[in-house]
Design a protein around this nucleic acid. Structure first.
Lengths: 211, 211
DNA sequence: TCATCCTTGTTAATATATTGTCAATAAATT
DNA sequence: AATTTATTGACAATATATTAACAAGGATGA
């Protein structure tokens, strides 16, 4: 049983998608089994870390054999909730909102895009990926009707706090926040921030220090 | 002097942009001084961590007073290389490439967007933000002429490895990689991956475990 | 000017994360 | 069927990161 009961650290959780990705590649190449040692070499991590990470969720492997790629792939997908068919909406039909709507991995990972919202009258009625852009006035009704799980926040930081609170109140479970601000919401909604500028600045730091 | 000489850990580096952001907000509100204690409360971290992080780079504060917001802001900006006027290009003029080109923070943080490249003939000649989209054939010449520092990779993963190696060979210092693959380049080029799907899957995990 | 208060920079203590080791055991080989 | 090899899961050892504690010294106010 080991450490399967303990709370799993975010350090481990953030590595799961990467395992999932590599296992998916192996599957594509018809590789049916993999040892932690070989996977570690492909991924550039230690075999020990892989085994320890996986054991947070269960003993998926077999001594002397390794791991079944397909089984492990599905198990991790399951842990990540990728087969739950979460319904998503995008708030903001600007460049970023559209880019995310067209992001192929989005649907490939099992997320269903149900609606896109904006406040600009020019955009209302336009279609992105066969999904009509709706006015924010319709948001509440839509979220309740379609039982939206995840909302993608692709709007400027000025309005984001109010919208985020509104979504949380409507029962949305997760906010994927691209606006350049930290959300502080009165709710137990889960928030995942993607601060693109932060990432670029980190790259800038590395260049600066090296040269 | 303390730990100023030791190699700074990425955990610390990744927090710098956030400090920079909060200090910028303080500046906007005409707050001229701040203690680690008050900043820690605003940011939701420990004061100890702030002081320890900053001391990796120097003693910017003063006992009994705290930190000068403007001074600290500029110092961190400097550490991050934001005043070096790095020249950037975007590879891929699809939705994501355009979104990033139009990203206002991009220029606000001191990065100069010099060119956008694509392979699709339909797009060549079109303009995004007054910048003409050029064909990849012109890439080598352009990078050399304009001394490009950073390239943003906003193309599908199929072609990204080859392009990345090409850019590295041309002397580009940093790659900001949005393609859903890990780059393995023969060069000392710095790579910052932004795997959007990974982030969404992490959010999915959190929702799944909680409910 | 002097005493008190405040806040840093630094070091020590604690907590967390990663890596190494090995007994247990299944698979592969002889 | 017996032996060797491979590999896990668990745990111990190590390394890294975070937090707490505090002496040193400037700021503040009487």
């Amino acid at each position: 049983m080991g450490n399967r009961d303990k709370k799993v650290s975010m350090a481990v959780v953030r590595r799961l998608p990467r395992y999932y990705r590599y296992l998916g590649e192996l599957l594509k190449h018809d590789i049916t089994r993999i040892s932690s040692k070989e996977l570690s070499q492909r991924m550039g991590v230690t075999a020990s870390q892989i085994r320890q990470d996986l054991n947070c969720f269960g003993g998926f492997g077999q001594q002397g054999y390794g791991y079944s790629v397909e089984y492990l792939y599905k198990e991790i997908g399951n842990i990540l909730g990728l087969y739950n068919g979460y319904t998503t909406i995008i708030i903001g039909a600007g460049n970023l909102g559209r880019a995310l709507a067209n992001h192929s991995n989005f649907e490939k990972r099992g997320f269903k895009l149900a609606g896109i919202f904006d406040i600009s009258d020019d955009l209302i009625g336009e279609e992105v990926r066969n999904i009509e852009i709706m006015h924010m006035d319709k948001l509440d009704e839509f979220v309740k009707l379609h039982r939206v799980d995840i909302a993608v926040l692709a709007i400027p930081k000025q309005g984001v706090s109010e919208v985020a609170q509104r979504l949380a109140n409507l029962g949305v479970k997760g906010l994927w926040n691209f606006s350049y601000t930290d959300l502080n919401i009165e709710s137990d909604v889960n928030i995942e921030n993607v601060h693109l500028s932060d990432s670029l600045m980190t790259l800038s730091y590395q260049i600066t220090q090296k040269n």
